[in-house]
Each structure stands twice: as C-alpha cells, then as structure tokens.
C-alpha cells in the first residue's frame, strides 16, 4: 500500500499556489494576446489584399507545422541572440505561445467568417455599408458567436500549454511542482496534486465557455 505522506504539499503549498498564480497570469495574458492577434490575422486573411494574405497564410501554415515547444525554445534561446532583445523567460513564453495559438485562432476566425450567409452581406451592402462597417457590425459579431465552441477548445489547450513554459524555467505551477517533487522525493503526491489542480482550473473554464455559447448561440444563427 502506498504511503500518502502529504508533508511536501503541506510544507510547499504556498510556493505551489504562487505557481498557480503565474500559470493563471500567463494563461490569461496568452489568451488575450492570441485572441487579439488571431482575430486580426483571420480577418485580414479574409479581406486584405494578396500582398498581405500570402505572408499571413505562410505564417499560419508554418505555425501549424512547428511544435509549440520548438517555438518556445527558439524564442527564449535564439531570438535574444539574433536581435539583442532579451525580456526573460516569462515574456519569451508569452510571445511563443501567442504566435503559436494565434495561428489556430486565425483559422477558426476565417472559418467563422466564411460561415456567415452571403445574404447577410448582401443585406449590409444594400443598406449602403462600407466593407469595414459590414465586417465589424454584421459579419464578425455573428462569426464570433459561432466560433465560441472552437475558441473554447483553443483556450483550454492554451492554458494547458503554458505548462511547457517550465522547460525555460518560467516559475509557473508545473515548474514549481517539478522542483517540489525533486526536493521532497514525493513525486506521486506532488504530480497527483498537479493533475488535480489543472483539472480544477480547466474543467470549469470549458464548462463556462459552453454555457456562454448555449446562451448566445441564437445571436449567430442567420
């Protein structure tokens, strides 16, 4: 019978909780920046001229072809050497996760925009709206509502992916769990706690997004 000695968790819970704070902070920032960048890229891929669409397509395709861990490591180790700009592991993680996740968001946004009925666009044009007006007032609001379930998946993957920031020593939850597990020789207890903590963060998050979608779905039905 395994001895569930919880002394390491009892001793280090403040340290671990601080890591949860870093994880939540990194997650929230990454979600905010990658949604912003992803929506912009998705909209521009639909409406911009070819001179912009082509490089954006290349960006999206390459981000889907490169593991996020590789982007992260490159951003932390290679980017500062190439540019002379070094902002520390937290910001490197934020940048890497953002450019990666935004590519997926952009694809979702593009699919959402393309799913809006042509009749809606004709109706907006017939009122005399300009292209930017019809995108902002008619297409995007409906597309965003329809995208919500897919965005929800991306948000939960993003929160989970912040754990790889541990590899560049961002003091987030996973990194601190590794530290505590290593020092206390109690990996079973600590890593089990890690499972539970991630579940407790993510399960309500995905449920919340589903419930929001259930409430607003009718706004995107045309």
């Amino acid at each position: 019978m395994f001895d569930w000695d919880l002394s390491a968790l009892e001793e280090s819970w403040r340290f671990l909780l601080g890591g949860v704070g870093v994880t939540l902070g990194l997650s929230a920032l990454t979600v905010a920046t990658s949604l912003t960048l992803g929506i912009a890229v998705g909209v521009l891929r639909c409406y911009a001229g070819a001179w912009l669409r082509v490089p954006l397509t290349f960006y999206v395709d390459s981000m889907r072809a490169i593991p996020v861990l590789v982007v992260l490591v490159w951003m932390y180790f290679a980017f500062p050497l190439l540019t002379g700009v070094s902002a520390g592991p937290f910001w490197a993680a934020l940048a890497a996760l953002t450019v990666h996740v935004a590519a997926y968001v952009a694809e979702i946004v593009r699919a959402g925009i393309e799913s809006v009925r042509p009749g809606q666009i004709r109706a907006a044009l017939a009122l005399g709206m300009s292209q930017p007006q019809l995108v902002m007032q008619v297409v995007l609001p409906q597309a965003l509502v329809r995208m919500l379930p897919a965005i929800g998946s991306v948000v939960s993957v993003t929160i989970k992916d912040t754990a790889i920031a541990a590899t560049i020593a961002v003091p987030e939850f996973m990194k601190r769990a590794e530290t505590v597990a290593g020092q206390s020789y109690q990996p079973v207890q600590v890593y089990t706690a890690a499972l539970v903590v991630y579940f407790l963060i993510l399960f309500p998050t995905t449920r919340l997004i589903d419930r929001i979608h259930a409430r607003v779905a009718h706004l995107g039905r045309s």
Binding site: R117, G119, Q120, R122, A123, A124, L125, A126, L127, G128, Q137, V138, P141, Q142, V145, H218, L219, G220, R221, S222
Partner: peptide, 18 residues
C-alpha cells in the same frame, strides 16, 4: 451612395440575428 437611395427587401429577410 446609390445603395443608400434604394431600399432592398430579401426573400429570406436577412435581418441581423445578433
């Protein structure tokens, strides 16, 4: 400018659902 002077009504209404 021309469209602003012509109202259009569609078979499927095309009200903005949001």
């Amino acid at each position: 400018a021309v469209r602003q002077r012509m109202g259009m009504v569609f078979q499927n209404f095309e009200l903005f659902p949001h």
